[in-house]
Design a binder for these strands. Structure first.
Lengths: 231, 231
DNA sequence: CTCCCTACAGATGTACACAACTCTTGAAAC
DNA sequence: GTTTCAAGAGTTGTGTACATCTGTAGGGAG
């Protein structure tokens, strides 16, 4: 927004600026604004954020460690490709980790969190009524995930769950055009309703198991579609 | 060994040099050669490895992302401290992940791996016969861990298990002087014997459960010692 | 004697120039 | 026509000077 000409942006500390750029680039990759295979130019990014290549490289290295880009000397920084079969292991692990959240010092969500989940269900209904949108689905999914991880009290598990989510979130958006969008919206709404009921009971163990079930079924639907597309 | 005066080291690619420096620093931190609280100088490290600060910073940033050091602007790069109660969450997660290894596409170890484990048990006996050494215990433990993670077929789970191990390995070495070293050697040997039996049967599920049991008991022994020391 | 403030030493963060590497393009040899 | 090689453009990796920040030591006011 503000072109920094006035320097209206809070200068902030180096760490905060780095985290900000990281978050922006991660979201662009996860939302496919930077599609798989796209080449990211350090110089262009440096220009966009009004910094030199050095802090940009710091961010790109972090994204590489998390598997979202691949840096190749002399070639460039490439957004990694996502293939369902290559991410099968990540999905299997996500299933098991989801079931763990209730066992490892879970956090009881407060009333505000319950209201936010209710609002998400409402937004889901509004979308279903109007035109269905891929991007809207992805954003709702991400917002709901934010509520889920807030219930994970075990900090290492929370960080790992986040990482794995960002690694797999793209495959959903990528395959969505080939799938039944209404079915996906419906399944997602059902998941939120069921989890909301468990949240109201304070039963985080069940929240974890419900998550596990729905991640598994979502994965199975994608496998079926991918298998059908190959014929 | 070779002081690089002759340049005998294979020049290697940038990635390999970076990984090499990373591995060296990680081992030094995990072996307490760099004790918690120690300040690492980018300039000194750059001089030691015959590079500039730039690649050193790349490695230190990675170590920070994994929680082994803390970089503070204007202050320095400090080796993070390890406290048992702060690492309790990591331990609880490690327990559950250990139990998962048998369920997620485990890798059957070959005959050579079985022999290496037998050799580790033998080395453990030699240590028990001679003078007991903290460093020897840590090295045996790390070597055995290498055999364990080789059985983890799920790649993301393997990487995560490695990270969490490096985060907790220091606390063992730190508390070892206050503990019964002979008891620890004995328990460790027992773990290896039991797991070897499961490996011979090709029962990786049991390997995982045995790991879980022994990680848990090791943690409980440390908790008891730490509690006793506080009085 | 205590407290505060200022200057300084030393650390990490940033910018920029250059080195090293990859891929492409084109022409020349066969 | 095919192949090979060399030169060039474009990218990331590295080295280095400087900017920015922090903790401390020292001196002066009260």
């Amino acid at each position: 927004m503000t072109p920094s000409a006035t320097g209206a942006d809070p200068p902030a500390t180096a760490r905060e600026r780095s985290d900000r750029i990281y978050g922006i680039l991660r979201d662009r990759i996860c939302m496919l604004a930077y599609p798989p295979g796209m080449r990211l130019s350090e110089e262009e990014l440096a220009e966009e954020f009004n910094v030199s290549r050095t802090p940009v490289r710091r961010v790109l290295t972090r994204l590489e460690n998390e598997g979202l880009v691949s840096i190749v000397h002399g070639v460039g920084t490439l957004v990694t490709d996502v293939e369902l079969d290559e991410l099968a292991q990540v999905y299997h692990l996500r299933l098991e980790l989801a079931a763990l959240m209730g066992r490892l010092s879970p956090v009881q969500p407060d009333a505000a969190a319950v209201e936010r989940i209710e609002a998400l269900i409402e937004r889901c209904d509004e979308q279903s009524a109007g035109g269905l949108d891929h991007m809207a689905f992805a954003r709702l999914n991400m917002a709901f995930f934010a509520e889920i991880i807030a219930m994970i009290g075990n900090q290492p598990l929370r960080e790992i769950s986040e990482r794995l989510y960002y690694q797999t979130s793209r495959i959903v958006l990528k395959l969505l055009p080939t799938m039944n969008l209404q079915e996906e919206f419906s399944a997602f709404r059902q998941e939120m309703v069921e989890i909301l009921a468990a949240v109201r009971l304070g039963d985080i163990v069940s929240v974890g198991h419900l998550r596990r079930v729905h991640i598994s079924m979502s994965f199975q639907r994608m496998l079926r579609r991918a298998g059908a597309a190959h014929r």
